[in-house]
Nucleic acid binder design. Structure first.
Lengths: 348, 348
DNA sequence: GTGAAAGCGCTAACAT
DNA sequence: ATGTTAGCGCTTTCAC
C-alpha cells in the first residue's frame, strides 16, 4: 500500500527540470499561453506561437505528462495484465496491441500475473491506482470472486482477451471450436477411433470451447473422446500423456491444448519411446516457432495473434471514444502436417 | 506532442472518485493525517490510525498514484525499451525484471522499438515525459547519435542490457565469448576446418564479441572462419545460408547468431536439401522452446535469461538507492547436441 | 488573443 | 500527535 521513497542521488544537474514556467518566462508570455500553443488551441496568434516554439526548442522543454494527466484526468496509459509474457502467444498479442495504442498516444503498462487469480485481482487494483485509462485482461479463472470484485469496484474500460465475464461486455474471442472441429474431422478421416484432448483449465473459455467442440465432432461417429483438464503447463502435458499412453486402450491421437502443454507431451512421448505419428498422432494448439521443423512437422491449430492484439486495442480505443461495448470473434484454423497419420492398428 | 482528450463516456457513477478529502471528512480528521497513516508515518496515535483505516475501508479508498507521483517526485515506474517483446529472449528478461521490480513497488512500462534506433530515441523521450524513475534499455545501434542525444539530455537512471554506451555506466552483459569459444573448440575437435558465423548487427556488443571470439578460437589452428553480419532476422539467416552453402568451399559448420537467424538457416537448409549434421553442423545462440526436439537436437549456446532480468532490475534498484553504477557480466555456456558431428569430407 | 487565478489529489513543512 | 498551508506542473475557466 505504501510507496517506498526514492533514493538520494536524484539530481546530478544543478538546474531543476525546465517546466512550462521557464518556457513562459523566456518567451515573455504567460504559462497558459505556452500550454495553449502546445496543445494546439485554435486562438493563438502566429507571433505567439513562434515565440513559444522557439523558447521550447531552445530550452529543450518536454511537458510533464504526470502533471498533464492529473489535470486532464487521463493518463493516456493502458494496463495489460498478462498471465505469462514469456509465452510468445501473449507476447505477440501484447506487441500488436501496443503498436495500435501507441499510434493514438497511449502507453502500455504490462504486468505479469503468473496465472494466479488473486495476483490478477491485485494487479487490477494497482493499475486502477495508477489511473490507467483502460485495461486489457485475460484472467486465469473466470469464476474467481476476487477478480469480479476488483473489476466491479472500478468504472473502467476493460477489454477481455479470450475470456467471458458477466461484468465485462467487451471482448476479443477466438473461435476455438472451428479449429478443433477441423482437426478432429481430419483425424477421424484418417481412421482414428480414440482421440484425447489434453486440455488447459476449464475455468477459462478456450478450454471449455475446445472440449465442447471435440465432443460435438465425435458425436455419432463412434469415436471415443477423452478430455483431461489441468493447468496450462508442461507438467500437465507430461503427466497426462504418460497416463494416457500407458493405460489400457490408449488414444491413437492426442491434441495438446496449448504450446506449454505440448512441450510436456513431447517429453513424455520421447521418454516412452513412442513414435509420432506411427504410434500416436499429434496436434497442438497455437503456433510455436520451430513446430514446422520438427520431424515430423507438427499439425497445428493456429490463430492470428497480431489480429487479436489489434482487435483488443481497437475495442478499447472505441470504448474510450465513447462507443458501446462489443464482442469480436476471430477465427482459428487447422494446419495438417506429418504428425497426423492413420493409426497403426485400426482395430482396438 | 499533443495528447488526445478522453472520450465522453467516462463516468457511469454519479459520485466522483473518493479522494483523501472524503476519507478525512468521514474520519473527522485532516487530510494530512490520512496521508500520514497511509504512508506509515511514525507519529500517529492508535486512535487516529484506526479511525482513518476504518474510513478507508468503508469508502474503498485507493490513493491516486498520479497525485502521489507529482507531489513526491517519483512515479515508482520503470521504462523498458525492448526491440521485440515477441522474442522469448527479451520476454523472459522482461518477466524476471518485472518480478523483481514489482517486489519493490515499481511497475514496468514496456515499449517496443522494432529494432529501429530513431524509434528507440523517441521512446526514451516518451518515457522521460512520463517521468519514469529509471529505464532498462537494449538499443539496436550503439553508435546512433539520436539515441546518445536522447539519453544524455536526461539525468535518469539507465541500465543497459547487453549493450555498451559511453554515456551509460550501468549494464548487464553476457559473456558471449565464452559460449562461442566452447562451441568452436567443440567443432574444431570434431574436425571442422571451415566455420561460418551468421552474425547479427555489428552495431551491438554481442555480435562483436561473438566475432572476436570466433577469430580468437580459430587463430593458429588453420581453421577458416567466415563471419556475415546483418540484421537479427530470419531473412538474413536464410540469405546468408543460401549463399554460404552454394558457394565454393562451403562451411562445414554454421553458427546462427540468434534464434531469429536460426529460423532462416533452417529454412534454407531444408530448401537446399542439406542434411544436418551430415552435410553441415549447426549451432545456435539462445534457447528456443523446441530446439531439443528437433532431429537432430540443436546444439545451443545459452544463457540464463531470468538471471539477466533479475540482475538488470537489481542494478537499477541499486542506482535508485543511490549506489554507484556497476557492470555485471553473466556467463553463457555451450550445450552440444546431435546437430554437431564430424564433417563428411575431412579434406576440402 | 492573452493573462490571472484556481485547482487536479496528494504530501511535507511548518505550526501548535 | 494533529491541523493548516503551500505547492508539485500543468490546464482551463474566467476576465479583459
Amino acid at each position: 500500500m505504501t510507496a517506498a521513497p526514492l533514493g538520494a542521488a536524484a539530481d546530478t544537474s544543478p538546474a531543476s527540470r525546465t517546466g512550462i514556467r521557464q518556457v513562459a518566462d523566456r518567451a515573455g508570455v504567460a504559462p497558459s499561453s505556452v500550454s495553449r500553443v502546445l496543445s494546439g488551441h485554435p486562438d493563438v496568434s502566429a507571433v505567439m506561437r513562434n515565440r513559444v516554439l522557439d523558447a521550447v526548442s531552445a530550452l529543450g522543454y518536454e511537458p510533464d505528462m504526470l502533471a498533464q494527466s492529473l489535470r486532464r484526468g487521463a493518463t493516456m496509459s493502458i494496463g495489460f495484465i498478462v498471465s505469462d509474457i514469456s509465452n510468445p502467444l501473449f507476447a505477440e498479442i501484447a506487441l500488436a496491441a501496443e503498436t495500435r495504442l501507441q499510434d493514438r498516444g497511449f502507453s502500455l503498462l504490462i504486468t505479469n500475473a503468473f496465472r494466479d487469480p488473486s495476483t490478477e485481482a491485485d494487479r487490477i487494483r494497482m493499475l486502477s491506482r495508477r489511473r490507467v485509462d483502460g485495461m486489457l485482461i485475460s484472467v486465469s479463472d473466470e469464476g474467481h470472486p476476487g477478480i469480479t470484485e476488483a473489476l466491479s469496484s472500478l468504472k473502467l474500460r476493460v477489454v477481455l482477451i479470450d475470456r467471458e465475464l458477466p461484468a465485462v461486455r467487451s471482448a476479443v474471442l477466438s473461435d476455438h471450436a472451428r479449429g478443433i472441429g477441423e482437426a478432429v474431422a481430419h483425424l477421424i478421416s484418417l481412421g482414428h477411433q480414440r482421440i484425447a484432448l489434453i486440455n488447459g483449465s476449464a475455468a477459462v473459455r478456450p478450454s471449455r470451447e475446445r472440449q465442447q467442440a471435440l465432443r460435438r465432432a465425435c458425436r455419432g461417429s463412434g469415436v471415443n473422446a477423452t478430455v483431461r483438464h489441468g493447468t496450462f503447463s508442461p507438467e500437465h502435458g507430461y503427466k497426462s500423456t504418460m497416463e494416457l499412453l500407458s493405460g489400457k486402450e490408449p488414444p491413437t491421437a492426442i491434441i495438446a491444448g496449448s504450446n506449454q502443454i505440448l512441450v510436456g507431451v513431447l517429453h513424455a512421448a520421447r521418454e516412452l519411446g513412442v513414435h509420432v505419428p506411427h504410434d500416436v498422432s499429434l496436434v497442438t494448439c497455437d503456433d510455436l516457432t520451430l513446430a514446422g521443423f520438427l520431424t515430423p512437422a507438427l499439425a497445428t491449430i493456429s490463430r492470428d495473434t497480431a489480429a487479436i492484439g489489434r482487435a483488443a486495442a481497437g475495442l478499447l480505443l472505441d470504448l474510450i471514444d465513447g462507443q458501446p461495448p462489443r464482442i469480436e470473434v476471430l477465427p482459428t484454423g487447422f494446419r495438417p502436417a506429418g504428425s497426423c497419420a492413420p493409426p497403426a492398428r485400426l482395430t482396438s
